[in-house]
Design a protein around this nucleic acid. Structure first.
Lengths: 108, 108
DNA sequence: TCCATATTTCAAGAATAATTGAAATGAAGA
DNA sequence: TCTTCATTTCAATTATTCTTGAAATATGGA
């Protein structure tokens, strides 16, 4: 993952409406939720929701599929896991540090 | 972690300058780096850097300590790990889903 | 105290992002 | 085809964030 990609992914999460949408989709699981229902659940008006879903789609944070007249959106965790890897990359220049609450804990 | 706290943390990372700063601090390890050196390394002018470091401090993403005339900044991973936990919280309403590239992988 | 220098604050402008009603688009059943 | 309704696009406004030089502040050595 590149720096710019990571910024796009993070920006897609760093907004109250979008974070609510994302968490709603995480909790509902892989089948996802129709746009209208997301609007209802989160209280975000359809046009605002559409704007945010577009951003999240661009960031590859959500997947969508059409089913009859509904469009179901679901969370994409692959990208989020990649993001975490990117953030901790080359921690302490690769030398395990063993300090509590620091990234290298996980490798130590 | 609360929704608003998470947005603050994510916003602190979702910006090119700040992401560069953070990654620089991750790679340099727990001793951190003096502000002037960060400015030099990243090419961000001192006043811009100060603005961003303040945001990151507010988000609790970096720690700082004074040493002589220098102020050393270092990355705080505890908060980042909390953030990941928050994002995957109650995934699939707690029911392991076993789907590839989905959050419940980690628990399954 | 006085100086050198590391860092922060200030202020104003520039850039980017969010909001939402109304109109347009698209899909599927009658 | 016509109608219905779920979703998206448009457009204009509003809000927020970023940027940076210059000035202020803070630290420690001389």
């Amino acid at each position: 993952m590149e720096n710019k990609t990571a910024v796009i992914t993070l920006s897609a999460l760093a907004q109250e409406s979008r974070l609510s949408i994302f968490r709603t989709l995480v909790q509902v699981g892989p089948d996802g939720m129709a746009a209208g229902k997301i609007s209802e659940t989160t209280g975000i008006p359809p046009s605002s929701l559409s704007f945010h879903l577009k951003e999240m789609t661009y960031a590859n944070l959500v997947n969508s599929r059409q089913e009859s007249r509904y469009i179901y959106y679901s969370a994409n965790f692959k990208v989020m896991n990649e993001l975490l890897g990117f953030l901790t990359e080359n921690c302490c220049a690769g030398v395990p540090c063993g300090i509590e609450s620091h990234c290298c804990d996980e490798k130590a």
